[in-house]
Design a protein around this nucleic acid. Structure first.
Lengths: 215, 215
DNA sequence: GTCTATATTATGATAGAC
DNA sequence: GTCTATCATAATATAGAC
């Protein structure tokens, strides 16, 4: 054994990227306490470290928030884009997108809740010009994502599989209902992906189908 | 004119209760910046006053938050209770409650947004025992309110006017969609109550009716 | 009731050792 | 890369004048 690979301790298997760990810890804190309520010390403590580590990877607290936000948007985009691409009727695509969105809410809820609740909480008027620019870019990402849903509603109206008076309004109420999942959902011990898919399906069915009995 | 009523200046007509003014200013600030982001100086500035005034009426910042929260809940309760009381089918009551709820979201959105976004943002673990007690009482109020909706769903299932697989899930998705109104709605200049009622009706119709075309 | 200080604490951020 | 100070600032809350 003269030529040995660098030894790998058991504790080294988990740690993905160090930077990723910091990001995840921040998302966790932001979800639990909100952006402002979270101190850099809190994030460090969640890592079992001190601020030095956090500041080594992220310039500032807003920067940290921005990265969590961007990651949350990336996750949503990557979940929905395949569904959009695979085609089908408007209703079929909407169903798939809604389900993908809901699963993201459940499985990456630390990030998603930061995204969902944190947007407009962030002070607009008093931020620096650079921060304001980043914020507007992030808001732009959100609009692009919302447009995916809006356009799907329009497609569904066109092909006769969906019936809503106003696609924008429909998009907002749908995403409102689904985003709200981050508020009340928390994973049960022993929960599997199957369970989550089942719950997501039930949620989407309830929302898309409406609450009234068909006469 | 020897017997004169105490003179009333024009500026004295508006001011209701002084305490109410402080509360409303706080709700406005909480909505715009979030709880933590709002300083007591911010609230004072919104009043055109200094902290002294705020602290004269409210012991502390958490106290101020609690009162805003409680007020928001009272508004919702008082809006929905008459609808519950007036009877009708489950579907009819649900429609009325949802519309009343939505109008509250639009017309008292400073309070409602504080309620909606602020609950779990408030740190649970580190609050004092007394604060924790108050928080739990407030959460209790919320549960009572949610139960109004849950029970209406159950009633609607029983009388055949509503069809949902799970009343709790239906309540959550419905309130999610409606609460989300505080995120995107802002009053247009020149908007009247009529406009808001129309919009609320459209929102409720969209949500209750579902998004699919009936075959 | 409202104001003007002021005490106290918490937090974002940095510098420099290891 | 991470830690241990440390600085500077901002915000809660209070005391006491008016």
């Amino acid at each position: 054994m003269s030529v040995t690979a660098p030894e790998i301790a058991a504790s080294d298997i988990v740690p993905l990227d160090r930077r990723e760990e910091v990001l995840a810890a921040a998302a966790e804190c932001f979800m639990r306490r909100g952006y402002e309520q979270t101190s850099m010390d809190d994030v460090a403590e969640a890592l079992g470290a001190t601020k030095g580590r956090v500041y080594h990877h992220f310039r500032s607290k807003p920067e940290l928030f921005f990265q969590v936000y961007r990651r949350a948007m990336d996750i949503l985009m990557q979940a929905c884009e395949p569904v959009v691409a695979q085609g089908g009727s408007g209703e079929q695509r909407l169903h798939g997108m809604a389900k993908a969105h809901t699963l993201c809410m459940m499985e990456t809820r630390t990030f998603q809740r930061t995204l969902t609740m944190g947007v407009d909480l962030y002070r607009f008027g008093e931020t620096s010009p650079e921060h304001k620019a980043v914020l507007e870019e992030l808001m732009g990402l959100r609009f692009v994502y919302e447009d995916l849903f809006r356009h799907t509603f329009e497609a569904g109206i066109a092909d006769g599989t969906l019936a809503v008076p106003d696609p924008s309004l429909a998009m907002r109420t749908l995403l409102g209902a689904l985003n709200w999942v981050t508020v009340w959902y928390s994973p049960r011990p022993g929960e599997t992906r199957r369970h989550r898919e089942q719950l997501a399906e039930e949620i989407v069915e309830t929302v898309l189908g409406g609450y009234r009995a068909r006469r």
